[in-house]
Design a binder for these strands. Structure first.
Length: 357
DNA sequence: AAGTCGGGGCC
DNA sequence: GGCCCAGACTT
């Protein structure tokens, strides 16, 4: 029938996208193959979604496998020690995610399983609008409108949305909602994300290969790289401070940072506060050695430069600037955020291991 | 609405 | 050096 042929030739953007996904989906450890009948394990979906917040697929991979090996289900994770979870999360960043992960696991275990609705999921700590929609769609087949950074970019180009993000997010959701297929909402969301990651990239999108190039309003006028519209970013100040490498009998003094705020709850090297003025102070008199090379580290909203001062003590001390030190063998330091891990590597490379007296 | 919160990979 | 990444939470 002519009408059917016309419909096939001008298949809906949703069906074109799903067909492309059936052929080109990325194979990822937490993902069910496209169109598979069985829904993926909500625990794996949730764990991957938390890890993937503002974090690349490549960075998440080893962490996901490690967590799944240590804690194969939500009951196991709920029973884990806080310090063990923080140690395993070290290096992945945004450490509030690890604290919320454990709190959410305990809430889920207590109620006997994951909520199956978007609104129920939204009540878990660390689960915001994006993550609730993604889990509902992928793990429970709920037709939720999933919007992450990839989908923002794809959809803003598809509809040529002039509104700057994130203010224009509601309008974007309204434009996208009619395209969500009730039969495959999870695959639809993941297809948009794969499209954004591999074809509809931030710069130099490969529109020639895009299954939606015939539907894309931005591509129609060659303006695809003008979307999405985003406000300019603020400049980041440079802060400075000093880290104290305090060693006794082959052990190094570590401290645990306060439970909230920057690097909250994580192991750290002790040191001064960080400020634009810079603090060069030392905690007590000793034969301090100043390492030549400082450690530089970029955070989202400031740049950091820390010098490292090292001292060998003839005896242990009970307190360092108000902290109870955790004495740790210098050759088995683990669970440090990247900033402190790099400072520790620098110290280990420049300070010889002393013979025991 | 604006700030806070990591780290790495890419151009 | 700036931008981006399967954002959430606080104020």
């Amino acid at each position: 029938m002519a009408a059917n042929q016309q419909i096939d030739a001008a298949a809906s953007p949703t069906r074109k996208l799903l067909s492309w996904y059936d052929a080109h989906a990325r194979a990822l450890p937490w993902r069910a193959p496209p169109g598979s009948n069985a829904l993926p394990d909500p625990y794996r979906v949730w764990l991957s979604e938390i890890m993937l917040q503002q974090t690349t697929v490549a960075a998440v991979g080893p962490y996901f496998e490690r967590f799944l090996a240590l804690w194969p289900d939500v009951q196991a994770l709920a029973a884990a020690d806080d310090a063990d979870v923080m140690r395993e999360w070290a290096g992945l960043g945004y450490y509030a995610r690890a604290r919320n992960l454990l709190a959410a696991a305990r809430a889920v275990a207590a109620r006997g399983g994951f909520p199956a609705s978007e609104s129920g999921l939204r009540e878990l700590p660390g689960v915001g609008p994006y993550t609730a929609a993604a889990i509902a769609a992928i793990a429970f087949n709920e037709p939720a409108v999933v919007i992450d950074g990839n989908i923002e970019r794809v959809a803003s180009r598809l509809f040529a949305l002039p509104d700057a993000l994130p203010a224009g997010r509601a309008r974007l959701a309204a434009a996208l909602a009619p395209l969500v297929p009730p039969d495959r909402p999870g695959d639809f969301a993941q297809a948009l994300m794969d499209l954004g990651a591999t074809i509809c990239t931030p710069r130099s999108p490969r529109c020639l290969l895009c299954p939606l190039n015939g539907n894309c309003l931005a591509h129609a006028t060659g303006q695809q790289e003008a979307f999405p519209v985003k406000p300019p970013r603020k400049a980041r100040p440079l802060k400075r401070g000093t880290l104290w490498w305090i060693e006794h009998a082959g052990e190094v003094a570590l401290v645990r940072r306060p439970p909230r705020g920057l690097l909250g709850g994580m192991l750290a090297l002790p040191g001064t506060a960080w400020s634009v003025e810079g603090d060069m102070s030392l905690p007590f008199p000793a034969d301090w050695q100043l390492l030549e090379t400082p450690v530089r580290h970029g955070f989202t909203h400031f740049e950091l430069e820390l010098r490292v001062a090292a001292a060998h003590l003839p005896h242990r001390i009970a307190h360092i600037a108000g902290h109870d030190p955790l004495w740790t063998p210098r050759n088995s330091l683990a669970g440090l955020p990247t900033l402190f891990a790099r400072a520790a590597a620098l110290a280990l490379a420049h300070l010889p291991e002393l013979e025991s007296a």
